[in-house]
């Protein structure tokens, strides 16, 4: 999409081995539903992020299928187990083929 998509992620910098942590993610995206019409009565085509995944060292935490009913600027909160030090990878998949990624390292406390 044309606008600059910048994910925001909130998670602790460190955790004990095996600890469950809370993660929040927010990404700016209009999530055009495909239900709206412009002033001339033409349907504005759907343009959404349709999938979000969170992985830790290559293993899945959550994999979310997203529909047009997810609000503008999609927000998720979920929990992950941190078995070891490593890297979280977050990926958003856009209808237009764009992929937005962010990574966050976490150390063992």
């Amino acid at each position: 999409m044309a606008q600059d998509v910048k994910p925001r992620i909130k998670l602790p910098k460190s955790a004990a081995a095996g600890e469950t942590i809370s993660i929040k993610t927010l990404v700016n995206h209009t999530m055009e539903s495909g239900q709206r019409k412009d002033a001339d009565g033409n349907t504005i085509p759907r343009s959404i992020i349709n999938r979000f995944t969170a992985e830790f060292n290559g293993q899945t935490v959550v994999d979310v299928t997203m529909e047009p009913a997810i609000s503008t600027n999609p927000y998720f909160e979920f929990e992950a187990i941190v078995p070891e030090a490593g890297e979280f990878k977050f990926t958003w998949y856009d209808d237009d083929g764009s992929i937005y990624e962010d990574v966050k390292s976490i150390a063992l406390a």
Partner: peptide, 12 residues
Amino acid sequence: DFDNPGMMFADQ
């Protein structure tokens, strides 16, 4: 601040 979407735009 994380839950407030307005802060995303302030940060931009």
